[in-house]
């Protein structure tokens, strides 16, 4: 139910935002001001898309067609939006899921490495994390291509349809988000290690490493888990840049090209898909949280 409300509110928001876009939507449908559409053609399109109806009616029609899962037709690509999205979603999804996994691995590694070491190690790790989280994707991508593609020839600089083509884009997306996750995890790891249960575990003969891996990390992972749905949104945003640089088909590039030609139905579609993915992920992270959280795992709160 709440998921539905979020989707509905997103759809409503996008509907009204796109109505604020300057310019005549009918002209946009005919290819924008660069086209040479006649007045009659503009009129016809206005009727066809219902732009001559009052806003409320248009809104109602839009919501009803959404209920029927009808996203309308792209102005520029002359295809149903659903088809375009179905083509674009898998590429981005694979990219984002892999990037999130890699980010998690990096973040856990960083966190554990630091909690073992000295204060200086922690300082260095801390600085690394902040630097990582402040790296723009386009910059990181360029460096990675220059080093691993042009200089070392390890990985192709553009998508090839093979797994090696995924390496550089996934790493590009993963590094900044890993910096974030590690920052969040390290803080809570420290808190967990200072907590009473840590002392008692040590007293029971648990090793320092065991304590970290078996107990404290679970606590530390919780806030970062809660971030995952948000992180996914961040990754989809990053995909706009990464897909452009690595020439991968996906939602990000679809959105960017739709924005530049004011292809409103496609923009709406991409935003709704992103909202849907966010909602689904929230449900998933909730479930995972319940599994990991010692408080809820042991027979509820």
């Amino acid at each position: 139910m709440r998921a539905f409300i979020v989707l509905w509110a997103s759809a409503t928001l996008v509907f009204f935002i796109t109505r604020l876009v300057p310019g005549d939507p009918a002209e946009a449908a005919l290819g924008g001001p660069g086209s040479q559409a006649s007045e009659e053609a503009v009129e016809a399109v206005r009727r066809q898309f219902g732009f001559d109806q009052p806003l409320v009616v248009q809104y109602g029609i839009a919501m009803l067609s959404l209920l029927r899962l009808d996203l309308g037709s792209s102005y520029a690509l002359r295809q149903p939006v659903a088809t375009i999205l179905l083509d674009a979603v898998p590429g981005t999804l694979v990219l984002a899921v892999l990037a999130l996994l890699v980010a998690w691995i990096l973040a856990i590694g960083l966190t554990l490495a630091q909690s073992q070491g000295s204060r200086i190690a922690a300082r260095i790790g801390d600085t690394l994390e902040i630097v990582a989280s402040a790296l723009p994707h386009f910059w990181l991508a360029t460096i990675l291509i220059a080093v691993f593609s042009t200089a070392l020839s390890w990985f192709p600089p553009v998508s090839t349809g093979t797994p090696t083509g995924l390496v550089l884009p996934v790493v590009t997306l993963a590094v900044p988000i890993a910096g974030f996750l590690a920052q969040v995890m390290r803080g809570s790891l420290q808190e967990a290690l200072d907590a009473p249960f840590a002392t008692s575990a040590l007293a029971r003969g648990e090793t320092r490493v065991g304590l970290r891996v078996r107990h404290a990390l679970r606590h530390a992972a919780l806030p970062a888990l809660g971030l995952s749905a948000w992180a996914f949104g961040y990754l989809i945003g990053g995909a706009v840049v990464v897909e452009t640089i690595f020439a991968r088909p996906g939602l990000g590039r679809t959105l960017l090209s739709a924005i530049t030609v004011r292809d409103i139905p496609v923009v709406t579609g991409v935003v709704l898909v992103s909202a849907l993915v966010y909602v689904i992920l929230t449900l998933v992270t909730d479930a995972v949280t319940r599994l990991v959280d010692p408080r809820t795992a042991v027979g509820g709160r």
């Binding site: 600089p157 553009v158 090839t160 640089i245 020439a247």
Partner: peptide, 14 residues
Amino acid sequence: PDSASRYAALQSGE
């Protein structure tokens, strides 16, 4: 679309 990637792809033989 990206000119730097395009050149890198040519250099790497893609």
